[in-house]
Amino acid sequence: MLKVLDSAVPVACWSCAVAHNDATLFCPHCSKIQPPPGGDYFSVFGLVPHLDLDLSELEHEFHRLSRKLHPDRFARAADNEKQWSLADTALLNDAYRTLREPIHRTEYLLKLHGAAIGEEHSGKDRKDPSRVPADLLEEVFELNMQLEEMRAARKMGETDAELQASLEQAKRKFDGLMDEVDHDLRAQWKAWDEGDAGARAAAQKAMVALLDRRRYLNNLVRDVTETLGA
């Protein structure tokens, strides 16, 4: 199977032998389904990589392609077409799942451009003080103490209304900070989508930092929610 990132590379259709570009799911000449194309998730939808997507358009295209590609349409087809329908639909679903979700989409695009993102980069140990965003250092320290206290109280079967209220307040605060991060991310989307190479590089760096911060906040909120709900 040809795996090329350059979607301009022509390949011959398995059925009619007419050459077409390899990013196509169907042969433009004979309309037969093709093996999974090279290229990224954006190209599956015929898009150039960008971040500010029209979600309803994306959904519409997802449905249109699903109707044509889905294994249900190939239940009685030849084995090779069945295989490709399965592989192509898996690719379509994976692409849609990634692109429709703003954070996943951003992470995916940044990874395409060589950024290191994810748990392995940000570090799994949230207690590691060097991972804590500097402006949150004090609050996180305080919060972790309260979480410990809360868990200890729970174990003893006690309830501490004051502590509960304080944790709930902390959760609201961190939720608010997450919203700010999301807002800032969107601003960077525009910068990336519309900017030149220099602006893109700057936006990319800013987004990597924002995603790190977001992941950190997300883990905190999850900890608090779990402890409150336990």
Binding site: P71, L86, A87, A90, L91, N93, D94, R97
Partner: peptide, 8 residues
């Protein structure tokens, strides 16, 4: 809750 077919 990932739409199937799905792959990784």
């Amino acid at each position: 809750n990932s739409t199937i077919p799905a792959s990784a």
